[in-house]
Simulated assay, not measured.
Amino acid sequence: MDKLAEIMAAKRHDLKDRIRPVHERELERLGQLQTQGGSFLEALARKDRLSVIAEIKRRSPSAGQIAAAELDAVEQARTYINAEADCLSVLTDTDYFGGSLQDLWDVVEFLECHNRKTPCLRKDFMVHPVQVVEAAEAGARCILIIVRALEDDEIKALRDAAGIAGLDILYEIHEERELEKALRFDPKIVGVNNRDLKRFKTDVGVSEMLIPLIPDGIVKVSESGIFEVEDAERARACGADAILVGEALMKAEDPEELLEAFHNA
């Protein structure tokens, strides 16, 4: 079993006791309550510079422990917004990434208290619309859909739920056939994961191969493997509108300086 399949099997098992019917009226109510931040899509669509989604991540299966288990997600968010990150990505998976849904609640509350409009992505392994409800309740403005990990009917259910709740979707791909699958769902944002989630090998060349194939009018994101300014420059050169960076910023001695350098790539 590859690593992604292992993680998805664990996620489905963990969700068993939380699965319930999710009704349109509930999603509509959550959509009406979406007040924190602006549109995730619009935050990435600016053309004057490379946008940065700054990720709060304590550990990962590929990198191991990245930051202390007791890392304060709010303090990391403060660092990122001081450096003018366009969006935040908050890992909410506990078993493999050391995050929690509480991290997302705390970060959004911090942003609201300081009147900051930086929109947040709930970064997790989405399977069922009940996770969309959780994301919207916590104040996320976007969810992740890993195209490889889901059947078409699961993607449709997540897409429809997110749309009613007023959330954007980042469709994540790693191969051309996954792009073809994603395009069937009329995506507004497509992220190319430079990390192969089967073997966890990372190559920015994946973005250089796939991003030019993504149709115009779709916001293009290069994810994973962005450690140096040169990596960001390669992503920008092949057509990326944004990069998603976690490990490099989490480990940087001066994350604000690095984030500014990424913006200027």
Rank of each mutant, 00 (worst) to 15 (best):
M1I: 15
M8N: 06
M8T: 10
D14F: 13
K16A: 09
I19R: 14
I19E: 14
R20E: 02
R20K: 14
R20P: 03
P21V: 06
P21A: 08
E24N: 03
R29L: 11
L30T: 04
Q32E: 09
Q34A: 14
T35A: 07
G37A: 03
S39C: 07
E42D: 15
E42C: 05
K47W: 10
K47F: 08
R49L: 00
I53M: 08
I53C: 02
A54T: 08
A54I: 09
E55H: 08
E55M: 06
K57E: 14
S60D: 13
A68I: 11
V74D: 13
E75D: 15
N82V: 02
N82I: 01
N82T: 12
A85L: 12
D86I: 08
D86V: 07
V90P: 09
V90H: 08
G99S: 11
G99E: 09
Q102P: 03
W105F: 14
V107D: 05
C113S: 14
K117I: 05
K117C: 12
K123P: 07
F125S: 11
M126Q: 07
H128T: 04
P129L: 12
P129T: 09
G139Q: 03
A140G: 05
C142H: 01
L144E: 01
V147N: 01
E151Y: 11
E154H: 09
K156S: 13
K156M: 10
R159G: 11
I164E: 13
G166F: 10
G166N: 12
I169Q: 10
E172F: 01
I173Q: 08
L179M: 15
A182E: 10
L183I: 04
D186I: 05
N194H: 07
L197K: 06
K201D: 15
D203S: 06
V206L: 04
E208H: 07
I211V: 14
P212A: 04
I214Q: 01
G217I: 11
I218H: 03
I218L: 07
K220P: 02
A235F: 06
D241E: 05
A242L: 05
A242D: 01
I243A: 04
I243D: 00
L244Q: 03
L244Y: 02
V245P: 06
A248N: 03
A248Y: 00
L249D: 08
M250S: 02
A252M: 04
E256M: 10
E257L: 13
E257T: 10
L258D: 00
L259W: 04
A261D: 02
A261G: 00
